[in-house]
Design a protein around this nucleic acid. Structure first.
Lengths: 232, 232
DNA sequence: ACGTGTGAACACATTCACAGCT
DNA sequence: AGCTGTGAATGTGTTCACACGT
């Protein structure tokens, strides 16, 4: 009773597919750089680390963009996936919290090969405000609403300490932001209609620890030798 | 044909559940700090941002740790989840790539409230090697195997540029690491039996962009006003 | 009376296997 | 002959709703 109602999946692309499209896109762009004109589902799937049936099913949700007996035209598929993901338009991003993490995000130029523009950086620390990071001047977080509005920000990234994250989230929403990427280790509460994604280092480590423990104990299985290299 | 065979789920905890246990754990630790002795599935679920049926089903996979009519004893549940996740033992972590991101990870002391220890930091840049970050001296990546082995590292974190990530991954594996957390935007190939998890900023942004675009165009739905605050 | 634990129903995702197009 | 696109089968995850223990 605490989360969003089951969205009626009206002719939409499955979430699991959406989550993989960026991976396919990146693999395709690598092929593009090597001037490969076409690619089979088998080859593209290998590059993306999935199996080919899944890849074909995923792509089939976008339309019928392959040619039987041949494969997919790389350039065309790049365009179709980009369009589907909304990367043919530009998205303005604001990052709140310019510590090491915020700086890493700001400097990470390869924002999925364009589509995203850093429009604002925000911090509360007077020692950081006024500095220039990745060619953008850091503004004071007190002016968040004003800065976010005037820069037309549509995606807010939260890289602040946990204690400030909820507050910053609500202020982003207040300023009209409806997409939030949260790196702070807290569960954010936001109004309906706001999309929040979470990235959490310590959760990932804990999941790894669980599997590592599994491998080590219990059923007597030891890490198997491994015959070759397999994408994961 | 390119990925791991379907693991026979022999009396194991579902992956989806494992991924949520750390969230429950964090919520429980917050309750512990406030000295709350017991909690209902309803209340804990709200704090974790899931619904209560899911929470109960998740916890039921660990055992029968609640009391009907009452709820769960916070302390006891913290212990059980910690044990299940393997956090009652210590895990040594090595971080390769001490740029802004690597530094952010190293400085992020709150590694899920203990359980993880930074045992080694590695970089290729002579300007960084020898420096001390988070009380650990940065070693040269050329000595990875040696350092990783002698420090007994069991989890490797890759925060290098994309170009070096695959190489570093194989050297981690070579040195006996079987759990890898990858922040570089590449699909890693590793031998069977090695567990890789990926965290990818630009993929998250692209997923947000997809949903933002959905909201904006097509079916005419505009971002709804939102009646109240709902965890996400 | 209350809240957990769970079977049954449902929803979503993956994989198989092959018909159909080039 | 080769490879896509997709129904059907299977596997996984979520939600419902209520029996059961305290």
């Amino acid at each position: 009773m605490t989360n969003r109602p089951p969205r009626p999946r009206g002719r939409g692309i499955p979430d699991a597919t959406v989550a993989r499209l960026p991976v396919y896109l990146r693999a395709l762009q690598a092929l593009q750089d090597r001037e490969t004109p076409t690619v089979s589902s088998e080859a593209l799937a290998a590059a993306a680390g999935v199996n080919s049936a899944k890849l074909r099913k995923d792509l089939s949700h976008l339309g019928s963009y392959g040619t039987r007996g041949v494969g997919y035209e790389v350039e065309y598929l790049v365009y179709q996936i980009s369009r589907e993901l909304g990367l043919t338009q530009d998205w303005s991003v604001a990052i709140a919290g310019i510590g090491n993490l915020g700086r890493a995000l700001a400097d990470y130029g390869g924002f999925g090969s364009r589509g995203f523009r850093i429009a604002a950086l925000l911090d509360a620390d007077p020692a950081v405000v006024g500095r220039t990071v990745a060619a953008v001047e850091v503004g004071h977080i007190d002016r968040l609403e004003e800065i976010v509005r005037s820069a037309g920000v549509s995606i807010g990234v939260i890289a602040t300490p946990a204690a400030s994250a909820q507050d910053v989230a609500l202020r982003f929403v207040e300023a009209g932001v409806t997409s939030i990427l949260n790196f702070a280790p807290v569960v954010l509460s936001v109004p309906e209609g706001v999309d929040v994604r979470k990235v959490d280092l310590s959760i990932e480590l804990q999941i790894l620890a669980f599997h590592a423990q599994r491998r080590a104990d219990g059923d007597g299985r030891r890490p198997v030798g491994g015959t070759g290299l397999e994408p994961v």
